[in-house]
Deep mutational scan, measured.
Amino acid sequence: VTLFVALYDYEARTEDDLSAHKGEKFQILNSSEGDWWEARSLTTGETGYIPSNYVAPV
């Protein structure tokens, strides 16, 4: 399991995006899409895309 933590708040801009709150942890499901990674929030269980530069490894 690849875990990352949000460094900043991010507000989803499309229905495919996933909002993130600073300190929230995510499981990365797919990081092969360049700057946008598919992730699952460990807080809400929701999945979507987050900007890779907004997260760091735990």
Rank of each mutant, 00 (worst) to 15 (best):
G45C: 10
E15S: 13
Y49C: 11
W36V: 09
V5L: 06
I28C: 05
E38C: 15
F26Y: 04
E15W: 08
F26H: 00
E15R: 10
I50S: 02
E24S: 02
L18W: 02
W36G: 03
W36P: 05
W37R: 00
W36K: 14
L7Q: 04
T44L: 01
G45Q: 05
F4S: 01
A56P: 02
Q27I: 15
S19Q: 08
V55P: 01
V58C: 10
S19I: 04
S41K: 08
F26C: 02
A20S: 05
S31K: 13
D35Y: 13
K22Y: 06
E38L: 15
Q27L: 14
I50W: 01
A39Q: 00
E38G: 02
T44S: 09
T14F: 15
D9L: 05
Y54M: 15
G23M: 01
E38R: 09
E11H: 12
V1Y: 14
A12I: 03
E33H: 14
K22W: 05
L29T: 06
G34C: 11
S32M: 13
I28L: 06
L42Y: 06
F26K: 01
T43S: 12
S19P: 11
T44A: 02
A12C: 06
S31I: 12
S31R: 13
S31W: 13
L18G: 01
A56V: 13
E11T: 12
Y8P: 00
F26A: 00
S31V: 11
Y8W: 13
I28F: 02
D16I: 13
T14P: 02
P51M: 06
F26G: 00
Y8S: 07
G45L: 06
V55T: 03
N53T: 11
N30A: 08
H21W: 07
K22D: 02
V1S: 13
W36R: 15
A6T: 03
K25Q: 12
S41M: 02
D35H: 11
Y8H: 08
Y49A: 04
A39K: 00
F4C: 08
G34Q: 12
A56K: 09
A39T: 02
T44I: 01
D16M: 14
I50C: 03
P51R: 06
T14S: 14
D17Y: 13
S32Q: 12
E11D: 09
E46L: 14
S32V: 11
E38V: 14
A56M: 09
G23V: 02
E33T: 12
S19V: 06
V58D: 09
A20L: 15
D35I: 09
L42T: 08
E11G: 05
N30L: 07
T47C: 09
N53R: 13
K25H: 13
R40E: 07
D16S: 14
K25V: 15
Y10C: 07
Y49V: 06
F26M: 04
L42W: 07
Y8R: 09
G48D: 01
G23W: 05
E46N: 12
E46A: 13
A20Q: 01
R13T: 11
G34W: 09
H21T: 13
E24I: 02
D35A: 09
L29I: 11
